[in-house]
Design a protein around this nucleic acid. Structure first.
Length: 429
RNA sequence: GCGGCAUUAGCUCAGUCGGUAGAGCACUGGAUUGUGAUUCCAGGUGUCACCGGUUCGAUCCCGGUAUGUCGCCCCA
């Protein structure tokens, strides 16, 4: 295979068999969002680089080493392929003053770009469904968003996706905890491994995630974020949990659940699976009350989450949920000049009646055309040769039923006969 | 970005202790020149990922690159 004509590493073609599956997935997702009152929004894939630096945080992995950033050679602007959707969505909200009159429930789906090393469930171009709600301050919207996920897993036929939640508190609470945590680990710096020392001043919360058994006791006794939450933060977190309990939604409070983006506060949550190897998170999000104001908008409470489409589709396929690709109703076989001219008219006429028609193209013997008709999965073959063309007739042959004779019909009667038989066979099932 | 493993026909894979390769499926054509699925016959499948090294000779051994995969980091 040529080395030069390949897709960019980590950016994949989605071929017809899989693309059909994606379309079904997207239809399911859209009707699910609609039933919660979410409305679509579409933002550009490219945004000014400073937007992401300000929204996501300068010292995050995403901004520091994963963004596809470039300078527009025509005017020198610093641009970036979006690594996530929330920043652009908030930018659009502010730019068009969308939350001025009333709260907004918005969603989008599309490509995101992060320069990471690809592996299963992680790609450089990947797709997210993003769901954002603006103007709701209470814990009810957090809980609704979490419960939405549970419904979608059901709609998609998925089980075994578990819910983890946590509260990050408000920025000042988190800052106090962070300072206490750093102080604690600095006291015991001799016990830390290299990994933990590296994280000490970049992301001390991540130290608590260590897989090193020697650090377990040290981490267990570290200052806990929940002890730094004020009464309002605690009440908000309890409010979310109350709705989840009322709904019978099982969850785990994971005090080590932190998000990789700086803008989160209060509620954060993740839906995780153990069936996708190292990429266990299929959906994650939380509250980000400060972001709209931070990016220049009026203070607006906000909450949102994103789902990894590739990961969800991998899960569905692993669960055996691959649907059959749609077969045409009719494959139109024809041979001879007059027959071919009639065939075009017949095919369009059948399509006028709402039928899916595959018109044979490329010539070939009747035998080879019939083979293609069978391979297409079509319910019927319609055969037009010069004999039929001369009388304005066509042969109608049922390909999926035993012992049904081929019939010769006037071409004007074809659609009615085909639709009638399709309805009959539907009723039998 | 770091480490392990992998890469042979369109697909799934075998194989050569170093002498340029096979199977199944799929595909194409044929079995009374107007009829598919089953059957029978015939047929092409290919820079053995790419580049270089060792060798009389490399698909096989060695090195690098690309891509995939598993794990780490991180994340959807």
């Amino acid at each position: 295979m040529s080395q030069t004509l390949q897709s960019v590493r980590g950016m994949n073609d989605i071929l017809p068999d899989e693309a059909e599956f994606w379309e079904i997935f997207e239809e399911t997702v859209r009707s699910w969002l609609k039933c919660y009152g979410y409305r679509p929004i579409r933002m550009p894939i490219v945004e000014p680089t400073p937007l992401f630096k300000r929204a996501i945080g300068e010292v995050t992995d995403i901004v520091e080493k994963e963004m596809y950033s470039f300078e527009d050679s025509l005017n020198g602007e610093h641009l970036t392929l979006r690594p996530e959707g929330t920043a652009g969505c908030v930018r659009a909200l502010i730019q068009h003053n969308l939350a001025a009159q009333h709260p907004r429930r918005l969603y989008y789906m599309g490509q995101m770009f992060r320069h990471e090393r690809p592996q299963k469930g992680r790609y450089r171009q990947f797709h997210q469904v993003g769901v954002e709600a603006f103007g709701f301050a209470g814990p009810d919207i957090d809980a609704e968003m979490i419960l939405m996920g549970a419904r979608l897993w059901g709609d998609l036929g998925l089980d075994g996706i578990e819910l983890q939640i946590n509260s990050l508190g408000q920025p000042e609470e988190r800052a106090q905890h962070r300072a206490a945590l750093i102080a604690y680990f600095e006291q015991h710096v001799d016990m830390l491994d290299d990994d933990a020392r590296r994280r000490l001043h970049t992301n001390p919360l991540r130290i608590l995630d260590t897989k090193n058994p020697a650090l377990q006791d040290l981490c267990a006794n570290a200052p806990k974020l929940i002890d730094y939450l004020g009464p309002e933060s605690l009440a908000h977190f309890e409010g979310v949990q109350r709705v989840l309990r009322d709904a019978g939604q099982a969850f785990t409070v994971n005090p080590r659940l932190v998000r990789g983006l700086d803008y989160y506060n209060l509620t954060v949550f993740e839906w995780v699976t153990d069936r996708l190897g190292a990429q266990g998170t299929v959906c994650a999000g939380g509250r980000y009350d400060g972001l709209v104001n931070q990016l220049g908008g009026k203070p607006t409470p906000a909450c949102g989450f994103a789902m990894g489409v590739e990961r969800l589709i991998a899960l569905i396929q692993e669960a055996g949920g691959a649907p059959a690709s749609p077969a045409p109703d009719v494959y139109l076989v024809h041979q001879g000049e007059n027959a071919s001219r009639l065939a075009f008219r017949v095919a369009e006429g059948l399509r006028d009646q709402g039928l899916n028609v595959l018109l044979h193209c490329g010539g070939g013997s009747f035998k080879s055309q019939m083979k293609k008709a069978d391979a297409s999965g079509a319910t019927f073959a319609v055969v037009i040769g010069d004999d039929e063309a001369a009388t304005g007739e066509a042969q109608l042959k049922a390909l999926r039923e035993e012992g049904v004779a081929q019939r010769k019909l006037k071409v004007d009667d074809l659609a009615e006969a085909i639709i009638g038989q399709l309805i009959d066979s539907d009723e039998e099932e």
